[in-house]
């Protein structure tokens, strides 16, 4: 995972999972925020979908993390202020922490409520421990706090990425978008 200035882009696997997870996480955030308020007839289906997709997001982030550790990651431009580089690195680290902790807290709160997770009606994840109201309170609030943090961090991430791509034009955005062959090495 050590930055390597000889590569200009993330590996193909990392890029594919990045964009897949971008869609997945935004859908999960929107579904989660909606389903806790809605009394509409589709609410239970949305809740089921949120749990299934959340499980997939967890599997995806673990796969992504191992793919990322397995391949070289492009370094950040030297033109960036050291503080900016530190901010970029720590925000990416925090994104990974949140992407792992968020589905875990969801699973733990469901366990505390005594509810196994059914993934698309084909796989069941059993509860981890018996019903526990205090733990439900803890994990339920944690799940929301992590989701709110992720939402804010994702917005910052998108803003910063667009700044790199549109204003600084320093190849940082391209490192996660363009196929390797077409990279502008200018």
């Amino acid at each position: 995972m050590k930055p390597d200035n000889t590569v200009a882009t993330y590996s193909f696997t990392v890029r594919i999972i990045h964009w897949g997870m971008a869609v997945l996480l935004l859908s999960l955030l929107l579904a989660g925020l909606t389903m806790v308020r809605s009394l509409e007839p589709w609410q239970p289906a949305l809740l089921g979908l949120h749990k299934s997709l959340g499980t997939i997001a967890f599997i995806a982030v673990i796969t992504r993390l191992s793919a990322r550790l397995d391949s070289a990651s492009p370094g950040l431009p030297q033109a960036m202020h050291p503080l900016q580089r530190a901010a970029a690195r720590s925000s990416h680290l925090l994104l990974y922490v949140l992407m792992i902790a968020l589905p875990l807290s969801g699973y733990l709160m469901q366990s505390a409520a005594g509810r196994p997770i059914h993934v698309f009606d084909s796989l069941t994840i059993p509860t981890a421990f018996p019903v526990n109201q205090e733990l439900y309170g803890l994990f339920r609030e944690t799940h929301f706090a992590l989701a709110a943090s992720l939402a804010v961090l994702v917005l910052i991430h998108i803003g910063a990425a667009l700044h790199h791509g549109l204003v600084r034009r320093d190849g940082v955005l391209q490192s996660i978008t363009l196929p390797k062959g077409k990279l502008d090495k200018a």
Binding site: V36, S38, Q43
Partner: peptide, 14 residues
């Protein structure tokens, strides 16, 4: 269909 979200909110509060 509405009961699930309402029970969940009550549960969350207590």
């Amino acid at each position: 269909r509405a009961r699930s979200a309402a029970y969940a909110e009550s549960y969350r509060r207590r």
